[in-house]
């Protein structure tokens, strides 16, 4: 009895929606904190971001979390679809005249549509960045330009160097010269003895900046991104507080707090996300 209650009942579906939803809110915070580094203008901005990206793709704990995130997204979406279908069935004949706006906010009535849009966004977003990061053979690697005085008095020479995860620099030219080769996208091997000598950073920063600064598509991408964040904001505006209610966390003492926090969250988080592409597209030099 109790077991099926936790899987099949109407209330169980609410719990799972709420739990996965709240987990995804946590994910949003984590993701946002990482992304905000894109706003950094320091010399090492790109490097720091790529370091972070590497950490996020390799750390075992993060990996575990990421699988949980994929699962949550999928479950949240599937559960949401099942709920929507069921709920449609609960009213086979609709009203001729219905004045829903007099008793509910728009977002709360359109969670399924908003959610679907977000799902489309997630798929696109992952194709644009996550898939490139994970699978693209032509993924650029992090380099720095180093100026060095070869001889005093001579003009300084600039040289493109790979930054290795291990902390050293390897001239990009060394690949062309055949001294080293790059295998498995980021591993550096000495050509002579085929020994792995270092790991390189994928340059996600570059991918991102180029994506939003693209002469042809950059503006559209930025607009779509901002629009998606608006959708997310509406979804969160209802969803955040709703999750607490679904889990039974309703106490007159704290309701206002939860409600206001939820509203703030729904506005601030998507806003900050949206600021990044706008900054990149319009202001980043």
């Amino acid at each position: 009895m109790a077991k099926s209650a936790l899987l099949k009942s109407s209330l169980a579906k609410k719990y799972w929606m709420a739990l996965t939803g709240l987990f995804l809110c946590l994910f949003l915070i984590g993701h946002l904190l990482g992304n905000l580094q894109l706003l950094s203008t320091g010399k090492d901005a790109a490097l720091n971001f790529n370091k972070y990206a590497l950490f996020m793709t390799t750390n075992p704990a993060v990996k575990l979390l990421s699988y949980l995130t994929y699962f949550s997204i999928l479950f949240h979406a599937v559960d949401g679809i099942v709920l929507t279908v069921q709920n449609k069935k609960a009213r086979p004949v609709g009203y001729v005249k219905n004045s829903a706006s007099s008793n509910t906010i728009w977002a709360s009535r359109n969670m399924a549509v908003l959610g679907t849009l977000i799902l489309v966004f997630i798929v696109t977003h992952m194709t644009n960045f996550w898939a490139v990061m994970h699978f693209d053979k032509k993924m650029p690697l992090q380099t720095v330009t180093i100026e060095s005085e070869v001889m005093p008095g001579m003009p300084p020479q600039t040289q493109e160097m790979y930054v290795t995860v291990e902390g050293s620099y390897i001239p990009v030219a060394a690949v062309e010269q055949g001294m080293i080769s790059i295998q498995n996208r980021t591993e550096v091997y000495r050509t002579d003895n085929n020994l792995k000598i270092a790991h390189l950073y994928k340059d996600l920063y570059k991918i991102t900046v180029e994506f939003f600064k693209d002469a042809k598509w950059g503006l559209i991408a930025t607009i779509l991104y901002v629009f998606s964040m608006l959708v997310l904001a509406f979804h969160l505006y209802h969803g955040f507080g709703s999750a607490f209610q679904s889990l039974g966390l309703n106490n007159p003492k704290y309701n206002l707090l939860i409600k206001n926090f939820g509203k703030a969250f729904a506005i601030i988080v998507p806003l900050l996300f949206a600021v990044i592409p706008v900054y990149i597209h319009f202001f980043l030099k």
């Binding site: 009942s9 579906k13 709920n87």
Partner: peptide
């Protein structure tokens, strides 16, 4: 447990906290 089971069996929809 019993009341919710009956509620589900009757074909009512699911709450999405719209507050209507």
């Amino acid at each position: 447990l019993n009341m919710v089971r009956q509620m589900d069996d009757e074909g009512f929809g699911n709450c999405t906290n719209t507050g209507a």
